[in-house]
């Protein structure tokens, strides 16, 4: 049994996904389900909080690639916060900072959505 947990909560009109444990090929479908649920509910503003995530593999990263375009097409985005250094390194290694916004803490990312909305 792989130790992975994903939780969804709402802060104003931003959806927060909390990840915990190991996100790999085995557990990626769970995260995929969450994104599908968000699409169904037409929630396109997503902040992913990596605070409790210890490991991510390519298959895990792939899930974010699979949903970024559709979120942005709907004036939303996927923003990343609270990454541990080893997790961020994997994102960095594969060039993700080019395409995604990374923040130190969740509130920063939420604020970014709100200022974008107001502008």
């Amino acid at each position: 049994m792989t130790d992975f947990n994903v939780n969804l909560r709402q802060v104003k009109n931003v959806s927060i996904i909390d990840l915990r444990g190991y996100l790999d090929a085995h557990t990626a479908p769970e995260l995929e389900n969450i994104f599908n649920k968000l699409l169904e509910q037409k929630k396109f503003r997503v902040v992913v909080n990596f605070n409790d995530l210890n490991y991510i593999s390519s298959a895990g990263l792939g899930v974010f690639m699979a949903y970024i375009e559709i979120m942005r097409q709907n004036n939303g985005d996927i923003k990343f916060t609270n990454l541990k250094e080893n997790v961020y390194n994997i994102f960095d290694l594969l060039g993700f900072p080019l395409l995604y916004e990374f923040y130190k803490d969740e509130q920063e990312a939420i604020n970014k959505f709100i200022t974008q909305e107001n502008s």
Partner: peptide, 15 residues
């Protein structure tokens, strides 16, 4: 197929 697709997307940065 799905797993392969995710890994390709994540590793190679393509959609």
């Amino acid at each position: 197929g799905k797993l392969l697709a995710f890994t390709l997307m994540g590793q190679l940065f393509t959609s």
